[in-house]
Design a protein around this nucleic acid. Structure first.
Length: 245
DNA sequence: CTAAATGTTAAGCC
DNA sequence: GGGCTTAACATTTA
């Protein structure tokens, strides 16, 4: 469930259900103090990158689904999974499984830079470019996965963005021309919205052009599958049409 | 059945 | 302290 768009979908589902509603019960095996939540009204539900934020008057519940996290609304479906947190409301109950949960204190706007979230209305391409300029030796594949720059971008989005803009995953930031760098930043956000739309339509996989593919859809030659960069994540790319600059 | 995968963090080692 | 590598976590699917 991990990449940013999936969190936006969850936020959109939860917001109308629980914002303004009082938490009547909280339980689960997450190592947090759940007594803080009982009786509190949800101020807002937001997402930042791959984080889901349930904002209460005095604290924020931060949920990160990592690789295998899931949730259910209304009923406890995954009985075999680790139930980290169950939040009860008069009207509904929500369940979070196999995720990392943390309670954040203080002003959420001081903790999160909304300009770094590729799916946020406050996203700043200029800021992303500035951060990239500060890391000339970093490979494009690693830069895209850097949550400080492109919060919400995951491995699938990374692969698809690089293919779309015809950039080799191992291209170093310093060797990428200004126009290409601009395209990288633009597509990180743009593809994320395509991902969001296709995910909602349950047609995401159908739209993959390189991720898990064997043959280049552009030039028909075999694609390379390699664990690239410092992140050593699975990368699919075309050695011919994805250039190193 | 085994391995790998949409991810991050902590621990251990120069 | 910093930077890098490895392990750990946990579930589903190929």
């Amino acid at each position: 469930m991990p990449e940013g768009p999936s969190l936006v979908i969850l936020k959109e589902l939860l917001d109308p259900l629980i914002t303004g509603k009082k938490i009547t019960g909280a339980s689960g095996n997450a190592k947090i103090d759940m007594s803080l939540f009982e009786g509190k009204k949800v101020t807002a539900v937001r997402s930042w990158g791959k984080h889901l934020l349930i904002i209460l008057p005095d604290c924020t519940i931060r949920i990160h689904f990592l690789l295998f996290g899931t949730y259910s609304i209304g009923e406890h479906i995954k009985r075999d999974a680790q139930l980290r947190l169950k939040l009860s409301f008069v009207s509904t109950t929500i369940y979070f499984y196999t995720c990392a949960i943390k309670v954040l204190e203080g002003d959420i706007d001081k903790i999160y830079d909304w300009e770094a979230d590729v799916l946020n209305t406050n996203w700043s391409a200029a800021k992303a470019r500035k951060k990239l300029k500060e890391m000339p030796g970093v490979m494009a594949c690693d830069a895209l996965l850097d949550q400080n720059i492109f919060a919400g971008v995951g491995n699938i989005i990374k692969n698809e963005v690089l293919f779309r803009i015809k950039l080799h995953p191992e291209a170093r930031v310093k060797n990428i021309g200004p126009r290409k760098l601009g395209a990288l930043i633009k597509e990180a956000r743009n593809y994320s919205f395509d991902f969001l739309r296709w995910k909602k339509e349950f047609t995401l996989k159908k739209h993959w052009l390189v991720h898990t593919k064997k043959t280049c859809t552009r030039c028909n030659i075999p694609l390379i599958k390699k664990y690239c960069g410092k992140t050593r994540r699975r990368t699919f790319f075309c050695n011919k049409c994805q250039l190193k600059s």
